[in-house]
Design a protein around this nucleic acid. Sequence first.
DNA 1: TGAGTTCCGTA
DNA 2: TTTACGGAACTCAT
Length: 877
Amino acid sequence: MTDSAKPTLMVVDGHSLAYRAFFALPVENFTTKDNQHTNAIYGFLSMLVNLIKAEQPTHMAIAFDTSRHSFRTDQYPEYKATRSESPQEFRGQVPLLQDVLAAMSIPVLTKEGIEADDILATLSVQGAEQGYDVLLVSGDRDTIQLVNDKVTLLYPSVQGVSQLKRYDPATVHERYGVRPEQYPDIAALVGETSDNLPGVPKVGEKTAVKWLTQFGSLDELLERAEEIKGVVGGNLREHVEDVRRNRRLNRLLTDVELPVAPADLATAPIDAQAVRDIFARLEFRTLLPRVFDAVGASDESVHDEPAVAMPAPIESSVSELAQWLTDQSEELAVTLVTGGGEISRIGVASMTELRETDWSEATADALRSWLESDSAKVLNDAKPQVKALLRAGIRLGGLEYDTLLAGWLLRPSFPDKTLAHLVDRYLDERLPVADPTQLVPETDGATPSQEAWFTLRAAAALRDDVPESVATVLTDIELPTLLALADMEIAGVAVSHDVLSTFSGELAARTDGLATDAFALVGREFNLGSPKQLQEVLFEDLQLPKTRKTKTGYSTDAAVLADLQESNPHPFLDLLLQHREATKLRQIIESLDTAIRDDHRIHTTYVQTGSQTGRLSSTDPNLQNIPVRTEESRRIRSAFEVGEGYETLLTADYSQIEMRIMAHLSGDEGLIEAFNSGEDLHRFVGARVFGVEPSEVTSAMRTKVKAMSYGLVYGLSAFGLSKQLRIEQSEAKKLMLEYFARFGAVRDYLRASVVKAKEVGYTETIFGRRRPFPDLTSPNRVLRENAERAALNAPIQGSAADIMKIAVYEIHADLRAEGLRSRVLLQIHDELVVEVAPGEWDVTEKIVRTRMADAADLSVPLDVQVGRGHDWNEAAH
DNA sequence: TGAGTTCCGTA
DNA sequence: TTTACGGAACTCAT
């Protein structure tokens, strides 16, 4: 408190400040796991807390607008009419913010037909009369008129909500050149675009101030308007009525009837538990201690102490540990410290006890039976640990939960997939981490059993949050898949260095030749791989027409170059395209070759949490983007061979799985019939769309409906379709209309699924996997439409991913259960590559075919194509 | 050394 | 103005 004995009354325009916060803070950082946006609430509270701490008000209230309707709109319907409606994401936050304020015992004032600023005006007058120092906080300039010796205005500066500028009469005069009560006169003359109040044309602040100084008052000025010369004088005379109206509307009411008087607004103790509860719901953590600090309340629960005290890790001998493990009846968490694929230490935790020991062969022997048993185990990021155990000859049993996978299933878009983040988010505690920048860290990182303990507790918290359908996806799809992937990664795939290097040599000779020829055509040498230098050559040296713009210049991608070749043929373009193609192949070969390990095989890593749809991704190297489209590029696939001790490779792929899912989900009778007819899909669809017999469908017709069918799944537009097929947009539009005339249920389904997603905030696959889409209700059209297309696609791509995962783990399990050596090696979204041991072809093929076909029970059959060959290319035929 | 951009390979 | 990925090369700033 200040040394003045005077009480301070602080009145805040909640609406205008929360609205500023809404636009100032990126919404993606402020979204709870239920997809509740909280950026406006957070920003407002953050500012409020700072204010309370700095100003120490003795009395306080927050005023809100009730609706767009007010006495001003009654008088002048156009008032604020150009202001677009505040977005739903904002409006949804206001009631929550008011709940928070209630918990903080801060009165919220609203009155039907009255704007927040009028409440501020009324309280400021009452407060000043009754001997308070009045502090107004508002983002609306009209409140400047309220400033006087007893009333100070805090107004957000351009930099943002956190910076408030303090206006007393002197600062107002300094800034606007008039006394505060004259500010509305200026505003009336100049007009206020944001309120849709036009002023006098060509009159800005400077002119307005000059006139007011000259004539002393607005009334005087309007009386003697004929004395003003020139165009502005004419403008003023023509707009006298507008000015009077503006002045009428921007006068704030100082006599609003309120249920409270300043004396009723004395600050009261906050309801600590209520604040904690609502902050937990809003997932605010750092704000909680700031609130308690600002209001001078103490709260022990906010000081980072774990809800449960962490037991001290017990260093155990191997035999003690083995004994302890068999004594436990509850689920345990396990953490293996691995490095270079080797295990160095193991930690195990129950809720109450932490045990750990170094890993050695003796450890492996002693713990094997427990590790392989069905005893329930929880791990975080189990796959690398499962692999390390497999290398040590132990097959982990009883894997009940993986917190990494659970966290990803809840929020597939969240990039931070560390245990530290899960602990932070779901336990609201901090996982101890060693400071990596210090040679001798001041703080120790968590030991393995401590990590296990946090994992166990994070799992409990996650189980509370994960909806049942998602929990089923984790248990029935992801965990079994994890075990299959571990074996696939360890198996790897045999790749011939010789085949690769022969091809690479040929390509090297070719790229050199192409570059030489290209430089000769241009007349100088440059870096063909540099988009920047290439632009100089294309658009300056060769004077080709400018293409599609990119952030940094003009595009030179393959599609653009093909367009250029059509409109402005130039031999250089051809050479460039060929050079690109050949260098790309060389790159791919190079990365594959360096990835071949001593066992002559490549071991990719499947990232189970690598996509937002449920697909896998593949890294180091990526084996899901090996070229296949051109005859030549398929030579790379021929380097992927059957390994030693095996007989042949088997490839199996789902044909048109996404269209089949579409048929199933939409229930479109035409599409279902297409798949049941046995006819080629695109031929069947083409016949329907173009009204001809299937035998009469030309390849051009087939190409068109094929592009249309595939495009559907992506939310393709007529524009995109025309671009892809290189046809007129009108023709593309016609094609879409014809298509939907025959397969209308498809369109109905796609539309309905986006509407549903908008309602519930997420999409769902056939098996219950969810993907949240907060942007579906975004006021930003680009964001919203992007989200709509992704939401259209997610259930389809995701269901296909679910089906393939089910097939993979069932095939994996069957092969093992039958005691076969044949094994799954690769998964490329809708294709599997299997290595078949001598004599096992028939049984393996049968398992693969039936498990893939039966992975889901849809209203159309799942068609599986199987191929056999010595290498991947051959097996694809 | 690292972030951002462009381009391109796959399903 | 077509979904989902990983990765190489280049550019520019640090």
